[in-house]
Computed example of a mutant assay.
Amino acid sequence: MRNRKWSRRDWLKASAATAAGVLFAEPLRAAAPPASVVTPELIAAAQKEGKVSYYSALELNTAERLARAFEQKYPGINVRVERSGAERIFQRIAQEQGSGIHAVDVANSTDPAHYLDWKKNDWLAAYMPEDVVKHFPADQIDPDGTYATSCAWFEVIGYNTEQVKPEEAPKSYADLLDPKWRGKLVKGHPSYSGAILTATFVLVRDLGWPYLEKLAQQRVMQVQSAADPPKKILLGERAVMADGNDYNLVLAKDQGKPVEVVHPAEGAPLIIVPSGIFKSAPNPNAAKLFQSFFFSAETQQMLADEFAHRSFHAEVKEKAEHVPLAKLKMLKADPAQVQAQSEEIKARYAKLFRV
């Protein structure tokens, strides 16, 4: 088992289709757990364990900031951050679980389909922080209480304002096919990034493969993470990003950098980032405490203020620079469908973009 090379296909199986418009809609198998309150007993038990292992697909600076804030709030508990792209995290956890290695306590991923698989394998523990039960909408919570959406953002178009005038900037995905953008585009890769996999699924579903076939002819710079395209246009290496997260551009613009966000006319893919605790967690009490901390109003507000992430916590105030959710055309993806089509999407995409 230790030498086996695990692929996503080994672990991902098609799941029951989700109800329309509901992000986490597996059949209810058991009663959801009650709201879990942070008690002195839980804190003491977590401090006795002294550590927690956190696997994250969030950017390293975000994951590390969460870790340091937790350590400051709960002295004596060290957070070990294991950060990588969502698809690599998925493969690593599969390898560890298949080899009987129980190293992960808490994991979040930008690919919600991972949680369908982990739940199907009975790897996730049922635990619902009090804030989730009280302040999060039902469609952002697993019915059985094994995970919930810790934060979210949008995949958008963006451009460098020193290279592109606002009136000439693309306003839609269709605009990216204009010959004037040939050799000037950059985008992420669905085999590395769960966010880009979801965004690619949405584009295939709504615009079809012919769209991506035409886009591939635009001599697009191919990078890995959804966080990479914003950095490339910020550096001026490319004028326009065909996809990438919105929060990096919002933060850069706050600092006076020459970048602008474009929410495509067709709609922007919504990227949700669930978080869950593993049943085999070596530090179960610290894992519960970390999960409760992650979903607290204090931490959720920090994610919104410092990193421009979206939060579904009802008490969190949106960053002023954000376009309100009510004014955006959101393109939501069914995780079960992403799961079922992921291998085909990655293989066909790689062939088209020759990567």
Rank of each mutant, 00 (worst) to 15 (best):
W6G: 00
W6S: 04
D10N: 15
K13L: 10
A16N: 06
V22A: 08
E26G: 12
P33A: 09
A35R: 10
V37P: 00
V37M: 03
E41H: 07
A44N: 10
A46G: 13
K48G: 03
G50Y: 01
V52P: 04
E59H: 09
R65L: 10
R65I: 03
F70G: 00
Q72D: 15
N78Q: 08
V79R: 02
V79F: 03
R80D: 06
E82F: 08
R83H: 06
G85A: 07
E96R: 09
G98F: 00
S99F: 00
S99V: 00
A103F: 03
A113F: 15
H114A: 08
Y115K: 04
D117K: 06
W118L: 15
K120E: 12
D122K: 13
D122Y: 04
D122N: 13
D122L: 07
D122M: 04
W123N: 15
Y127D: 10
K134Q: 12
D142A: 08
D144E: 13
F154W: 09
V156G: 02
N160L: 05
Q163H: 04
V164T: 11
L176F: 11
L177S: 09
L177G: 10
K184V: 06
H189K: 13
H189D: 14
S193Y: 12
G194Y: 00
F201Y: 15
L203I: 10
V204K: 11
V204I: 15
W209G: 07
P210H: 12
L212G: 04
Q218K: 15
Q218L: 14
R219L: 02
M221H: 10
K231C: 01
E237I: 01
E237M: 05
L249M: 12
L251Q: 13
Q255P: 03
Q255K: 11
K257Q: 06
V259W: 01
E260K: 13
E260W: 02
V261C: 04
V262C: 08
V262M: 13
A265G: 05
A265H: 13
A265I: 14
E266R: 11
P269I: 05
P274T: 10
G276T: 11
A281V: 10
A286F: 00
F290V: 02
S292M: 01
F293A: 07
A297Q: 13
T299C: 07
Q300T: 04
Q301M: 06
M302W: 01
A304S: 09
F307K: 06
A314E: 09
V316Y: 02
E318Y: 01
E318Q: 12
L328E: 06
M330K: 08
K332A: 10
D334Q: 11
A336G: 14
Q337P: 01
Q339W: 03
Q339N: 14
S342F: 01
